[in-house]
Design a protein around this nucleic acid. Structure first.
Lengths: 339, 339
DNA sequence: TGAAATAAGTTAACCGTTTAACCGGAGGGG
DNA sequence: CCCCTCCGGTTAAACGGTTAACTTATTTCA
């Protein structure tokens, strides 16, 4: 168990003071070429690696940020358990973090106090909010000096913080257009709710598309499931079959797949009897029977951009709050047909 | 931007030395009740929160561990992108970490050097290996003083480190028994490979079950897909239909679902023509048509136990390397039938 | 009664960096 | 020739905690 080599070891080895070594490493003050070479050589020879903890203490910068994820209430487990969306998002974040020498820690805590402690205790440089959180949390965070980037948040916070989101409105729009252009006029809208930032925008686009095609939005065909579970989709599938709608746009593939399951189990067929469009383009969606027409979003990329934005902000390359809206595209598969 | 309150502020406020405050916080030395109360009150009043970075520097303990995840080679993205297995595993880890006041950072790096730097730079207390890694990495880590817990690793490392795994052998066994007991004797084995620690054990169990039922293992019915992709499952489904097997055990649900897709697309039926058993019990598996008979493993729990083991080890409650084998169970659904 | 043990605090060194302040010598300008 | 500036380095004080060693007062008990 060899003692870890410190900056002092390097200094002694190179025959200079620790300050000089530090200056060489950080390039913040001029050092003669000759000395610099000696120091570099020493670092090389001793396999020196600055201790982040010490750096952090002294610079008050940790090269580390936190990721906040909603909890599922009853279990207190983070919502990303078994959720492709989150795992892909984090994957994107990990990718650019690593490239930039940052690390991140994850917490499901949404208690404002706990959360503030987390940030100060760990000396976090920044915070990434994935999804929407209780109002109080945003309030609390405002008093912190941490840099914050939001992902998929309400517009009202966009003035304060960076906000990375998909073009959800466009997504709802192209999904509805697709159905309308295929001759459908009785089109249902299916979502967990209509008051969360995402579904709200998707509904707006949906509405606009119908308007443009001179189709009126029938409130009876707005189905809200409460959550995004497969089973909820199944239940809505049942209700859909009791309505007169011939098509549906669901704001998540899981819901759409649940609906399809219900439809099939009751001797109806997709797309023969009902045309279904989803949202997300999960991996399974291309493998379901029939494969699912859906609005594709590049979640990995979204995570990557969110992380990059945060890092830029921390390093003050990114001046002020800015909203980035990423494109979505329609992937036409076999779950929709011409009426 | 109020200056962060430090231990000195607390000391002054309570009229004691910083040492006393520290002793109160850590309970490592006796402090009179009266003083203790004053200090506690001060902490309360000032909302004091010890700075982990400073603690870490002085105790050489970070209350943080690292998670190592394999990379998918071409993209350099961590393998957990969109992977339910990993997201659930990490979810379990997060759950117990948070409860114990630990944080973790994730890296996809498998370059031994990079990895060693990561550990020393961040002063990590421990390392969690999820999956199997190049031999060299284990070698390199041996020289570090970090505590290590492996998840799903080869047995050969079990003497050195803690090892958390499922009872894969039992899983293969009960899957094969299930098929044999339903009258199948021409049973295929489907896996990404047979040399990785997991599939190897599942195959062992599979083999034993067949032996017990006096069925011989036909090498022609061992299908190796190379990877665990849905498409690979699909391809193997095609090959299965050209063989004389009537049933198959796939070591992952994804593979099993891919096979089912191939079978259905070629006018055969599951379970009528082929009985299929998977492994994992992914969420989708209960919703596929037909729903998939599979070997269920509690991945969240596995993650939780792994994290707990690591934390116990770090805090030296867990003396020596130990292998924990977690139970699996068969979930019988509609993809298997009596022959 | 007095030496030894105990109890409850305090002092100060240390963890591994960064960085402001300082210093001596060389070169340049008036 | 003297003063000033610049260059390339060093010294030492932070950063916010922990903890060994020390102090002082109080018990304990032979």
């Amino acid at each position: 168990m060899t003692q870890k080599t410190t900056i002092r070891d390097v200094a002694k080895y190179a025959g200079v003071s620790v300050a000089t070594v530090s200056y060489v490493i950080n390039g913040v003050k001029k050092v003669s070429d000759e000395t610099k070479q000696r120091v570099l050589q020493a670092i090389q020879d001793l396999q020196y690696q600055p201790n982040f903890t010490a750096v952090s203490l002294s610079t008050n910068k940790s090269n580390m940020f936190g990721i906040l994820i909603p909890l599922v209430e009853d279990t207190l487990a983070p919502v990303f358990a078994g959720n492709q969306y989150y795992s892909e998002l984090i994957s994107g974040i990990e990718y650019v973090s690593r490239k930039n020498g940052y690390d991140f820690i994850i917490s499901g805590a949404s208690n404002p106090n706990e959360c503030r402690n987390w940030v100060t205790k760990r000396n976090l440089d920044g915070l990434l909010f994935l999804g929407s959180f209780p109002e109080k949390l945003y309030e609390e965070m405002k008093t912190l000096h941490t840099k914050i980037v939001l992902v998929d948040a309400y517009e009202e916070y966009s003035r304060l913080y960076h906000n990375i989101r998909m073009d959800d409105e466009l997504g709802g729009y192209i999904a509805a257009c697709h159905l309308a252009e295929r001759g459908h006029s009785r089109i249902a809208f299916v979502a967990p709710g209509i008051n969360n930032p995402i579904d709200r925008r998707r509904f707006l686009g949906f509405e606009n598309a119908l308007k443009e095609h001179h189709i009126s939005v029938n409130p009876e065909w707005i189905f809200l499931s409460g959550d995004g579970a497969f089973q909820s989709g199944y239940n809505i599938g049942m209700r859909l079959m009791q309505s007169k709608a011939t098509a549906a746009f669901a704001t998540s593939d899981i819901l759409a797949l649940g609906m399809m399951k219900a439809i099939h189990e009751h001797n109806k067929e997709v797309p023969l009897d009902y045309s279904i469009v989803g949202f997300d383009d999960l991996i399974i969606s291309q493998y379901s029977s029939p494969s699912l027409t859906t609005v594709r979003q590049d979640v990995f990329n979204k995570g990557a951009i969110a992380a990059q934005t945060l890092i830029d902000t921390v390093e003050s390359k990114q001046p002020r709050a800015q909203t980035v809206t990423l494109p979505v595209e329609l992937v036409v598969r076999d779950s929709t047909r011409f009426l």
